[in-house]
């Protein structure tokens, strides 16, 4: 059982989606995350165990390697795809409530801004860390963040911006969220913002990179 979970962990860590996928070369001819998850479930491994002992630690390793500049984003994306293949098999257990994620994380690029590369990376890493991610996309006004939190009480909200002329919209959105939902935690990130700005606009947390978001979320969840 442990061997199976270790194999699954490696498949996700190195981005082996399924048997057919050619990537990574060293796992050619081996089962991928898709087949290994089916096997694990058939062998009686619990879905929560699959999530906690294989998928989340695999993505944790991937996140650490990325933050140490040992892999590029494409490798991280392959790992996310492998995890997605596994999660597809676990979906019924999420629906039935047999397994639970660590919480809900709502993310979007603020209104007036279309840049989404950084936001997408954060979303992927947070999902890999075992959170339910709701990605609102780009050019997102206050009302959509608030609506999403109302639909997912207790969710954490993250705002992204790349431009100096759109980062000012973060302040407005944070104020709107806090006025309507005072207990909601709001994270901010993006090239022009920093911790001082985070404090100035009344947001709760700033991270300079995706791994910083994941680490802070882990502290909140523990």
């Amino acid at each position: 059982m442990e061997e199976l979970l270790e194999k699954l962990l490696q498949a996700v860590e190195f981005g082996k989606v399924d048997f057919k996928s050619p990537y990574p070369p060293q796992l050619k001819g081996e089962n991928g995350a898709y087949e290994l998850t089916i096997k694990a479930l058939e062998s009686g491994v619990g879905p929560q165990q699959i999530l906690e002992n294989a998928l989340v630690p695999a993505m944790d390793r991937v996140g650490k390697k990325f933050s140490e500049n040992k892999i590029f984003v494409p490798q991280m994306l392959m790992s996310a795809k492998a995890m997605g293949a596994s999660m597809l098999q676990l979906k019924p257990f999420f629906t039935s409530g047999e397994i639970k994620t660590k919480g809900t994380f709502i993310i979007g690029t603020v209104k007036g801004d279309l840049h989404d590369i950084g936001k997408n990376l954060v979303a992927m890493m947070v999902e890999g860390a075992g959170w339910t991610v709701i990605d609102l996309g780009v050019d997102v006004p206050s009302a959509r963040y608030i609506e999403a939190v109302n639909n997912n009480p207790g969710a954490i909200v993250a705002l992204s911006a790349l431009l100096t002329t759109t980062m000012v919209n973060m302040g407005e959105i944070v104020s709107d969220i806090k006025a309507n939902l005072p207990t909601t935690k709001v994270f901010i990130g993006g090239a022009p913002v920093n911790n001082d700005y985070c404090q100035k606009i009344g947001a709760d947390f700033y991270a300079p990179d995706p791994q910083g978001v994941v680490e802070h979320l882990s502290k909140l969840a523990s």
């Binding site: 100096t164 002329t165 980062m167 000012v168 919209n169 022009p192």
Partner: peptide, 8 residues
Amino acid sequence: FTLPVMSI
């Protein structure tokens, strides 16, 4: 050039 941090 561009504007400093401000709304338009």
